[in-house]
Every structure is written in structure tokens, then in C-alpha cells.
Design a protein around this nucleic acid. Structure first.
Lengths: 343, 343
DNA sequence: TTGTACGCGTTATCAG
DNA sequence: CTGATAACGCGTACAA
């Protein structure tokens, strides 16, 4: 186990001082080309590597960015992480991953820990029921950038990168209407969460703008699980006037509904159309591929990372950014009627 | 932007020295209970938080662990990360994520960077074609634990947590034989990669042990993509004597095959059985659920993390660990014949 | 039981 | 152009 070589080691070899070595390595203009070359050469020879911890302590910048999210192994989140990593690693930043498991208390603890570790920025998606913004304000008070993605909360000074959930839902619903559906149901998840509320509102607005009647009985709140989708679909079909389409705020809900409907002999998409949300991989693997709304998670991650980099460069003038990504409706078999051509 | 409070700040308030404060906070037995209480109280009052960077520089331990893998947004990997994070975060470690994109050069660079950042350990799955072990040996030379998961390579001193791919493949093939299949094909991926080679060998051994003939024409090498699975299935069905089952080393390959077979009117599982590998989420979402081999990725991550922790505690006596997890065959519709009951 | 002094590896400031 | 010195915040021998 060889000791790490420091600038002192290379200074000693060259009979100069550590300060000079440091300057030479940092390409300080006030150093002669000769010594620069010399230092760089022996640095390579001794296999010198800058100790980023020392630099971090000195400069107060750790070159680490914290990424905080509910849980890693979900399509949206793992893709966002990928995007962030791909954008930030080339710029010399390391990405620290933390999971809140949708627990507000844990979220606050994690943030404390990250601040403590002197991260240069925090990119996060808030826990499901986070209401308190105190721990977020602490981040900003230390003047370190805070960027929300997907699930955000209003905090003065924080930036955000989100999907236009309203528009995604609007377009999905509009598409269903264009397919000739007139009794369109909606699976929501938890309308206290902004993204789901927005999807609900987009759905409602599309109905309104197209003079399609809005029926409170057609709106069901459920967990994003297959079983819940099945149950909900069953409930819908037992109504006096069952719907002829579902716009589900989750792909799993849509899948459950499809499975139930097929089970009772409903023809999709001839008798009934279904659109989901999120573009989970499985939606295109089914025999009956599922129409859905893509969230471009990779782009979301990259954009969040870019906002962070922008804030780092802007130094003192950190302007609050609100980036809104465009959803992209993926029209597939579950909502493509042969006699209708999607616009 | 209030400055961070240090032990000096709290020392000044109490008219004692920083050393005493440090000791008090670390519960040093040689400090009077009174001053301990006092220090802890004012520490809380001033909202003191230990600066982990300073500690890291001092101690040489960063409390960071590097996790290096080909790509984040894949089921296996994102679940492993989740397992690692859940095990390590409670122990005070932060998890740094880096992607190699299966590029050996990038892999080496990332490792350099992590060593540089003084990570306390590296948990990784190697790039697809990594042959050189030099960068791994550098890790061990610095006496920091190196733990491979899933894709490993032989390096003296490194530990590993892998799935028993041989057994997983063996059991899958055995299961197909028990279903009455006698002409069993195999989709491999890239046999220069250990895990795929092991699956191939497990397949072959199961045939041998059951006196089922091994046919070289039944072994096809393909990318783990739906299209490749379709193409390969087509090739198989065009043989003079087509097979009656496929054990695919990838779920996507299995899915492609199923789609092709259904397309040409082959009844699954009556006429033909298929088993995949990895237990990707979609395998249980299909109407025709796909039998597959589960890799317990969460457990894999947790186990790797535990091996790391063990090595940290063992201090100088770091023993090489080779943990092998048991695969778990998930028998689903794609290979469940009504007249056969799986053992 | 507490204080003094030093080092971890770097960079920045001030001299020269 | 380069050297000396301080400082980042902490822990710890050594001394008292």
C-alpha cells in the first residue's frame, strides 16, 4: 500500500516549494514554462493525483451533487439519474444518490447529511407528502442550488424541471375524444400530489373544450398497481352507464383495466380505448400495446443537471428557473381504432 | 448565507478550547459529564454540524462508496443500487454512482477519479469487455475494498457477489424437460461474458444429465432485444427439425420469440415452451406471463454492501469473499403445460 | 479533566 | 517568477 504522492513529494524532488508546484499544475501564468513542464513531467512520473478532499476543504466545493428521490428502481427515476450522471460526470462532478422512500422525515435527514458533506448542489424529487419547506430553505440559505424535478414544491429561489402534466393529460384525453369516445373515465392517483392533480385538470379541461360531459362517477382514485386498475375497471363497468374509454394517470392502472376488460370480453380498442401515463417499458411489449404519455426522463435529468451547472457558473446571480418539458403522446393499439386515423 | 458553525465557534462561546469541544462531541471518556452536556447543548443551539470534509481529510476516510456499473436504467442495476443504498446509508455512507457504458477506458478513468476522491470502497459490475485488471489492482493496492457484483473478473483480493447463473440455467432447462420438451433451444448473448457462458453451460449440463440430445444448431447468439428474439425464433423454426422449447438467457429474447411464435400460430405452452432470464417486470405483466429466472437484485445489492461493511470492520484482515446467490425459477404460463405439474 | 500544537493536502496572500 | 506562511475544520499525541 504505497502512500499517495502529494505536491510536497514532487516539490522535494525538484528542490522547489509546494506552492510553486501547485501553481504549475494549475497553469498559473506567472510560472515559467520550464518549471511548468518539469513539474508536470515529474508529477506524471510520481503518479501524482490531486487529493480532492483537501481541495474540497480548502475551497468549500466538494464537486459532489446530491440527488434525492423517493426510490431508485423506478423507470422514471432511474432514467433521470442516468441523465444527470451523464451530464455531470464529464464536468467533474460526482453524483450521490439518496432515497427518501417517500418519508418526509427521512428526506430532511438526508438533506442535512448532504449539506454537511458540502455538496455543491441538490437535485431532487420530493417525497409524496412533503409539506414543510424548511429543509429546502436551509439549502438555499447556504447559497447552494436546489433543483426539483418531476415532483416539486414552491420554494422561493429553487428551480424546477417538470413535465407539462396538464398538457400530457389534455392531449391524451383529446386523442380519446378523436377516437370517437364520448364517455371517458379517469384513473387518478392522489390529487394532493401536484403531478396527479395536473393530470386530472388536463383531463377535465379537454372534456370541457370538446363539450364532452364530465361525470364525477367516472373519476376514480387508485394506487398505481395492476390489481387496483382491475378493481377500478370493474367498478366502472358496473355503473348504469359504463364509460367507453379510460385515461389512466398510471400505466399500471391502465394495464389492470385492460386485463379486466379483456377478461369480460370487451374489445379493445373497438369497444373501449385506454391510454396510460409514463411510457413504462412494458407498455410497448404487450401484444396489445398501450398508448401512453412519455415523460422523456433522460432529458429531464439532463435538463436538471444543466440548470445546476448554469447556477454554478452564474455565481451570485442565481436566477430561479422553471423548465417545463413537453409530453409526447405515444399512440398505440389500445386506443387506435381502425376507422379513425390519429391526427 | 450564514457561515457554518465550527467547533471553534462553540469553544469561544463556552470559553474552552476547540479540542475539548471535539472530545466532548465524540464522547471521549476523559471529559467531565458537565462540560459534555454543556457542549452538546450549545452545539445544538448554534446548529453545529460536523464538517465531513475536514474529517475526511484528517482521517483519510470519506464515508463515500463508489458504485460503478455499465448503465443505471436497467432493472438489475437499478435494483442493486437500491439495495446498496438502503444498506449503506444507515451506516453513514454516501453512495456515488458512475456509469461506464460498457467502455473499459471510461471504467478505468472512473476508478481513478473515485480513488482520487478517496472513496472508502468500490462496489461494481465490470464493463462487458473488460480484460485488463490493472485498474482493479490499483484499488486493492491502496487497501480499499473492491466488491464485484453480477459481472466479475478474477482479481486477487477482490470479493464478489454473484448469482449462480449455472444453476439458474440448469433449473430452467430441467424444468423444460419436465414439461415434456425434448428439443430445447438456447438463446445466448455473448459467451465471452462469464454470466452468459455459465448460463450456456448450465443449459448444456441439464440436457446431458437428462440424456436429452444437445444440438449445436439449437444454440443461437443474439442481442437481448425483442427483434433479435424474433429473428432467432424464425431461424429456429425454419430448421428441418425445429425445437419445441427455448431457454433464453434474456427476457427480451424470450419475448421476441414468443411474439414470433404466436404470430405463426404456434400454441404456447401446449406446442412450445419458453423460459427467459432476469425476471424483468414485464414478464409478469403479459397476458401470457413468461417463466424466467429471478436474480434477486435487491439482495445482491444488500449483500455486496454487507461484504463491504465486513471488510471495513475487519480492518487489516480483509478476506476475499465469494458470495453466490441462489437463483429462483419463476414458473409462469409460457412453460406451464396443463398436463404437467411443475415440481 | 483540559489545553497546546500539529498535521491532513491544497491554494491564496503577501513578500521578495 | 518563486518562496514562505496561513488557512480550511477536525482529531489527537503530548503536556499540564
Amino acid at each position: 500500500m504505497s502512500k499517495k504522492t502529494t505536491i510536497y513529494d514532487i516539490a522535494k524532488v525538484l528542490n522547489i516549494t509546494a506552492a510553486t508546484v501547485s501553481r504549475a499544475l494549475n497553469n498559473n501564468p506567472r510560472i515559467s514554462e520550464d518549471t511548468k513542464k518539469l513539474v508536470q513531467k515529474t508529477a506524471k512520473k510520481l503518479n501524482y493525483k490531486q487529493n480532492s478532499l483537501a481541495l474540497a476543504l480548502k475551497s468549500g466545493k466538494s464537486k459532489n451533487v446530491g440527488v434525492v428521490l423517493p426510490i431508485i428502481n423506478r423507470n422514471l427515476f432511474s432514467n433521470v439519474i442516468r441523465g444527470i450522471e451523464e451530464e455531470l460526470n464529464p464536468m467533474g462532478y460526482n453524483v450521490i444518490i439518496c432515497q427518501t422512500h417517500d418519508d418526509e422525515k427521512k428526506e430532511a435527514d438526508i438533506i442535512q447529511n448532504l449539506l454537511n458533506a458540502q455538496v455543491d448542489g441538490i437535485i431532487m424529487s420530493i417525497a409524496r407528502h412533503t409539506k414543510n419547506t424548511e429543509h429546502f430553505e436551509q439549502i438555499l440559505k447556504k447559497n447552494i442550488p436546489l433543483i426539483f424535478f418531476d415532483r416539486k414544491i414552491d420554494v422561493k429561489g429553487a428551480s424546477s424541471v417538470t413535465l407539462d402534466d396538464f398538457r400530457g393529460a389534455y392531449e391524451a384525453t383529446q386523442h380519446l375524444i378523436e377516437q370517437g369516445c364520448t364517455k371517458i373515465a379517469h384513473f387518478t392517483v392522489d390529487r394532493s400530489v401536484e403531478i396527479y392533480r395536473k393530470r386530472y385538470e388536463g383531463y377535465k379541461q379537454a372534456l370541457l373544450n370538446n363539450s364532452v360531459v364530465f361525470n364525477e362517477d367516472y373519476v376514480l382514485s387508485l394506487e398505481s398497481k395492476i390489481e387496483s386498475g382491475k378493481d377500478a375497471a370493474k367498478k366502472l363497468m358496473e355503473l348504469d352507464i359504463p364509460p367507453d374509454a379510460i385515461f389512466s394517470a398510471s400505466d399500471l392502472g391502465a394495464l389492470g383495466a385492460i386485463q379486466y376488460l379483456k377478461g369480460i370480453g370487451v374489445q379493445i380498442p373497438q369497444d373501449f380505448c385506454v391510454v396510460g401515463f409514463s411510457n413504462e417499458p412494458f407498455t410497448q411489449f404487450m401484444e396489445l400495446t398501450i398508448s401512453t404519455v412519455d415523460q422523456s426522463p433522460l432529458l429531464m435529468g439532463k435538463t436538471a443537471a444543466k440548470v445546476f451547472l448554469e447556477q454554478m457558473n452564474a455565481d451570485n446571480l442565481k436566477i430561479e428557473r422553471r423548465m417545463v418539458l413537453s409530453p409526447s403522446l405515444k399512440i398505440r393499439k389500445s386506443s387506435s381504432r381502425l376507422d379513425y386515423t390519429p391526427s
